[in-house]
Design a protein around this nucleic acid. Structure first.
Length: 170
DNA sequence: GAGTGCGTATAAG
DNA sequence: CTTATACGCACTC
């Protein structure tokens, strides 16, 4: 198994993104809008042991198009985390495009109804934004809740998805 | 063992 | 809107 990762930059309607992938699949997707250098540094910290890294913006562009619905193509993901984190992320992956779930519902779905806060922490650690749709997990009372890149981006992602679904139904 | 966090519920300013 | 209390649990140090 190779220790090589490929990263690249791309953009989408919500801003610039960085994408990384291993031999196994996409391992990282983050927005760069507000903290470009910090985000790149975070990726280097997380995947630093995987060398050498090569840049491939075409790869990033393809992933971006899949993530934002312009390209219907299955993407292999390379999710790495604790057993608990993987259970949470797998559950989040089940949330359909255009829908939302509460942190409470996700906790119940994995059989840990009292671990709501831990579920939220795990979701906050999600390394693959959008593809693992942690933006679709909101508060029980319907408010949007926190997001790494701000509540406003979370709100725009959710509303854009709902608009897309409505458009396709008409 | 202590501190932390993308929550929830309730209460209060 | 914000702060405060309590509950709960994975995770870090």
């Amino acid at each position: 198994m190779s220790n090589e990762i490929v990263y690249g930059f791309s953009d989408c309607r919500f801003g610039d993104i960085i994408v990384a992938r291993t031999e196994q699949g996409v391992c990282d997707l983050q927005f760069l809008d507000f903290n470009r250098l910090e985000t790149i540094h975070e990726l280097a910290e997380r995947w630093g042991e995987y060398t050498p890294t090569t840049q491939d913006d075409d790869m990033a562009h393809t992933v971006s198009r899949v993530a934002f619905g312009q390209l219907n193509h299955p993407l292999q993901l390379d999710l790495r985390g604790t057993a608990f984190q993987l259970r949470v992320w797998q559950e989040v992956l089940k949330i359909p495009f255009g829908q939302t779930r509460s942190y409470q519902e996700v906790a119940e779905a994995i059989g840990e109804p009292t671990a709501v806060r831990a579920v939220a922490t795990a979701i906050a650690q999600n390394p693959i934004a959008v593809l693992v749709p942690c933006h679709r997990v909101i508060h029980s009372d319907g408010t949007y809740g926190e997001y790494h890149w701000g509540r406003d981006l979370k709100r725009r992602l959710i509303e854009w998805e709902k608009a897309q679904v409505n458009k396709n139904q008409q």
